[in-house]
Amino acid sequence: MLTVRVIPCLDVDAGRVVKGVQFQNLRDEGDPAELSRAYQKQGADELVMLDVSATPEGRRTRIETVEAIREHLAIPLTVGGGVRTVEDASELLSAGADKVAVNTAAARDPSFLTELAERFGSQCIVVSIDAKRREEGDGWHAVVQSGTEATERDAIEWAAEATDRGAGEVLLTNWDRDGTRSGYDLELLEATSSVVDVPIIASGGADRPEHLVEALEAGADAVLAASIFHQGDWTVDAVKDHLEDAGLEVRR
């Protein structure tokens, strides 16, 4: 059977890895190619690189960053951040991404996912959904533009629609928890995995291996984390020891 997957995430701004809380107060955490090599060596099952550059100059360096990471990376690489057109996706895949993650552009026009899936195949299209708990009432709504803009969409309904439209995986971030290290939103994961038939990558809030175990038990197929790895608190290997102890199958 399939193993669970542990996925370090590199938030990249103008060619450097950064991490803040909800993309604010970004701290420099290092060189993306060096970090990706280190994580691969530690046993990472995949890598996700999200380009958070706000400037056109920053965006232009992202292809070079993908190429530099690919040169030494022998595991799958997903790249997202500002993918708006088929050309954007094509450029990233040619540079060495194995999958592209789409967020805002898909939420604005869901047919974009179909277009991408028809052109490249669902296996390389990831829909990235940032879910924020509703201030009034139950549930979560999807937010876009790095969390600055609310949408009318219910996050769980959107996950179901996006996979019907051709997304092969869902990268599901609880926006309230991103970078806070307060644990994944397990209710969100349970609710989403009951309606979505493709793998779910849990994101937002990991602080220690127990959080990853909880997320996987709540229905995630893979767990994404940034801060706990960048700051050296945990290696991927050490995290996998915990997952194994909890009875989950991991790749060694």
Partner: peptide, 14 residues
């Protein structure tokens, strides 16, 4: 024409 082969090329380069 459809396969994404950048990873494959990089693997052989290594």
């Amino acid at each position: 024409g459809v396969a994404n082969i950048a990873s494959l090329q990089a693997a052989f380069r290594r």
